[in-house]
Amino acid sequence: MDFEGVSRRLSSLATQAPEPTTLARLGLGLMVFSAGVHKLLDPLAWSAYVVGWLAPWLVISPVAFMLVNGVLEVGFGAAIVADRFTAFASAVAAVSLTATCLYLLLVFVLEGGLFGDVLARDIGLAGLAWAVLVQSLREDGRED
């Protein structure tokens, strides 16, 4: 296999690809949007992430909580994909994903490793959301 040739071809393709910040924004937006859609289609599956000691703290049932989150995520995800109100929508995603990571870390510690796989994934998604937020704020700052 000619690794140098493959590397040259990939470099050539990369020059034609969208900007990395656009790819990050679209990836985050599609993730938030699709998670919201899935929460609306199957809120019971998502309610499994509400452990027993958290449920009494919610003012609504875990299923209703997921439905509300689903509606919000569809809207924020669509805004990020459309590149409208990106700073606000990605800030919501970044704060929400960071809070989710903290919750999952607490559950992981208190519940003997529960949701460790989801925690590992969501740490990366939170980082992606913060990166999209910082980039959108930089772009907003240049428009002044």
Rank of each mutant, 00 (worst) to 15 (best):
G5D: 08
R8W: 00
S11P: 00
S11A: 14
A14D: 13
T15H: 12
T15S: 12
A17L: 14
E19F: 01
L30E: 03
M31D: 11
V32M: 09
V32C: 02
G36Y: 08
V37P: 11
L40C: 09
L40Y: 08
L41Y: 05
D42Q: 07
D42V: 02
D42H: 08
L44F: 04
W46I: 00
S47Y: 07
S47W: 10
A48S: 13
V51E: 12
V51Q: 11
W53P: 08
L58D: 12
S61C: 04
V63E: 15
A64H: 13
M66R: 08
M66T: 10
V68R: 04
L72W: 07
L72A: 15
G75E: 01
F76M: 15
A78I: 01
V81I: 15
A87K: 13
S90Q: 10
A91I: 05
A91Y: 03
V92P: 07
A94P: 02
A94S: 10
A99T: 12
V107S: 00
L110D: 12
F115M: 05
G116S: 06
G116H: 04
G116L: 00
L125C: 02
A126Q: 04
A129H: 09
A131E: 05
S136D: 11
L137W: 12
E139Y: 01
D140T: 09
